[in-house]
Amino acid sequence: MASQALLTSEQPLELQRDVQRKLGRCLLRLQQYEILLKALIAHSEISGPAEALQSIRDAQVASAHKKTLGTLVGMLTERHLTLPDATEDEESSVQNTENIWCSFRFQLQLDEQQHQTTIAALKELVDLRNELVHHFLSRFNIWEQQACTDANAYLDASYETIDGHYLTLRSWAQAMEEARTQLSAFMRTSAFEDLLVNGIAPDCTVDWPASGAVRCLHEAESHLTASEGWTHLNTAIAWIQSNHAEQRPARYGCGSWRHVIHESQQFEVRKATNAENGRGEVWYRSKTA
Rank of each mutant, 00 (worst) to 15 (best):
C26G: 01
S3V: 11
A121D: 14
L224R: 06
Q20M: 14
L76K: 00
T288V: 15
V133A: 14
E34A: 04
C26Y: 05
E90R: 10
I100W: 10
E34R: 00
Q16V: 09
Q4E: 15
Y159W: 13
I261L: 11
E221Y: 01
R139E: 10
A250H: 11
I261E: 06
E144W: 06
Q113R: 10
P209Q: 06
H244G: 02
H223D: 00
T71N: 06
T225E: 15
T71H: 12
I35W: 00
E268R: 11
F104D: 05
G164C: 12
E112F: 13
T71S: 11
A220Q: 04
K271H: 15
D18E: 14
N277R: 05
L81E: 05
Y159C: 06
A226V: 04
E51P: 01
T68Y: 10
A201R: 06
V269I: 15
A185H: 11
I56F: 05
I100S: 03
W283T: 03
H244Q: 07
L169H: 01
A191W: 11
L167Q: 13
T97P: 03
A52G: 00
G280N: 14
K22F: 15
G278P: 09
V206W: 08
L13Y: 04
K67F: 02
V206D: 04
Q95C: 04
E98W: 03
N234Y: 08
L155W: 14
A153D: 12
N130I: 05
G229E: 02
C216R: 07
S9H: 12
S222P: 00
H80Q: 05
R25C: 08
Q247S: 08
Q241V: 04
W208F: 10
F192C: 11
S256I: 14
L195M: 11
L76N: 02
W172I: 14
